[in-house]
Structure formats: C-alpha cells, structure tokens
C-alpha cells in the first residue's frame, strides 16, 4: 500500500479496523464439515466476509471477526452450521 507523504485525512485499508469484532458474538456458528456440500451459500451471504473459502471450496469460519449474526446457519440448506451459545460446552 502506497502511503502518501501529505498532511491530510486519508485512511488506509486495514483488516480489523474496529478491533476483533468476534468479541461481539453471543452465539457461535459451528460447522460440521461432514455435512457440508460446498454450495458456498454461507460464504457469499456472510455480511462480514469471515467465512474463508479454501482452494477446494471447503469453508472455514474465522472466529476473530465473526459477529455471530447467524445468517450462515439460516441459509445453510443441509444444516451443516449450527448456532451454539458461546459459554456452552462443546
């Protein structure tokens, strides 16, 4: 990223601009990789973009930034993602 040598209010792109937003989470999405059919619906619908799409189209959830909205669990047609309370035993 080219930084400009001028005094002005330019902001530069950075991941985690508002800190680790994973701390907002009340419910934690848990992915059952055996049920996943790689349809990628969770990946495209995740408002945060915190579902990582691997090279072979499997998905991983980035818990550092996942806000726990539950959209992924709701759009999953095969119910591979379930929402569990954060403090619940796994």
């Amino acid at each position: 990223m080219k930084k400009y040598d001028i005094t002005s209010c330019i902001s530069y792109p950075e991941e985690g601009a508002m800190g680790k937003t994973g701390s907002w989470r009340v419910f934690r999405p848990t992915l059952d990789i055996k049920k996943c059919v790689k349809c990628l619906r969770c990946w495209i619908f995740c408002p945060e973009g915190s579902i990582k799409r691997n090279k072979d189209d499997t998905v991983e959830i980035n818990y550092d930034y996942c806000k726990g909205c539950g959209v992924c669990a709701n759009v999953c047609k095969v119910k591979a993602i379930t929402m569990k309370r954060e403090n619940e035993k796994k």
Partner: peptide
C-alpha cells in the same frame, strides 16, 4: 475487509461484497 463497524447481519456489507 473483516472487522468493520457494520451491525451483525448487515445487508449493506452483504450486498457490497
């Protein structure tokens, strides 16, 4: 990028992506 200030479940970032 991740870690933005959008509400959880925001449709704006969903569409913007």
């Amino acid at each position: 990028l991740q870690g933005n200030a959008a509400c959880a479940g925001c449709p704006a970032t969903m569409a913007l992506r």
